[in-house]
């Protein structure tokens, strides 16, 4: 198997008294796309937010178990530093009410970069990597909010890339987009996986099948506590799942 980039061992998460994730142990390989699938409320988005510690911002969240990035305990890393290494793209495109340039330059600027020449280079290369450069190169001063939904989401991806992370977390990045914009995002995810470790939450089975190398199936029963049922190469999950519940889910029998 490949090098492990992210790893959890017996990871549990509680919202107050509610046990949201139980005993998740998983190894996410480097420079691959890993899809997290499962029915609504099974905790896959919560699990995703573990890796950039965005759950820390939610009151009453408590965790047990171990989480590693590059074999380093993520709870020993300052969350601000961790988030520079682990970027995130949200379900709803959320560009800042700033120009396209300022959106992409935001990350480098908060880390202290002032050199305008360098910022210009980073903005261009990030927008190129996010397959947006050709559409916006002539109006970088235009507001990011003036772009279409699909373009906004690629702008958000460019913004995340500009910080030069090694991991990108995507929380249903195409959920609010039309089919053509969705395809563009999926192509982009595929291209990005050459250089980045990507973890994507999706509700869309076909999407998981199209973009990911590995798939993790999360499931929850009546207790609403999320568990990892099965984790394997996407091919295996979709053609030869070991668990009956995985098979039922991917064949559309529930969820």
């Amino acid at each position: 198997m490949n090098t492990t980039k992210l790893e959890t061992k017996n990871y549990n998460l509680f919202y107050g008294n509610f046990h949201a994730l139980r005993d998740i142990s998983m190894q996410i390989p480097e420079k691959k796309v890993t899809a997290l699938i499962g029915p609504s409320g099974c905790g896959k988005s919560t699990f995703l937010r573990t890796f950039n510690r965005m759950n820390d911002l939610i009151a009453g969240v408590r965790t047990t178990g171990e989480v590693y990035i590059d074999n380093k305990d993520i709870f020993s890393i300052d969350p601000v530093a961790l988030r520079q290494n682990v970027g995130m793209v949200f379900q709803k495109p959320n560009p800042f009410p700033k120009s396209i340039f300022d959106n992409v330059a935001y990350g480098p600027r908060v880390t202290g970069m002032r050199d305008h020449k360098k910022l210009e280079e980073i903005v261009e290369s990030s927008l190129r990597s996010a397959a947006l450069w050709n559409e916006v190169k002539d109006d970088l001063a235009k507001s990011g909010l003036a772009l279409s939904g699909g373009q906004q989401q690629r702008l958000c991806i460019a913004r995340a890339l500009a910080v030069q992370p090694s991991v990108i977390l995507m929380d249903e990045p195409a959920a609010s987009l039309d089919p053509i914009a969705t395809l563009k995002i999926e192509d982009l995810i595929h291209d990005l996986s050459q250089n980045y470790t990507i973890v994507i939450v999706t509700h869309n089975m076909q999407q998981a099948g199209r973009v990911s190398d590995y798939t993790a199936f999360f499931y929850t029963d009546d207790t609403r506590t999320g568990r990892l049922v099965e984790f394997d190469e996407t091919n295996t999950i979709f053609t030869n799942p070991k668990d009956q519940r995985t098979e039922d889910y991917i064949t559309g029998r529930f969820g």
Binding site: L57, Q84, F90, G107, V110
Partner: peptide, 17 residues
Amino acid sequence: PDDYRRGSLALGATKWQ
């Protein structure tokens, strides 16, 4: 919108930034 706050924090900005 909280989306702005989350977006900024997720890029490694501090709360003050």
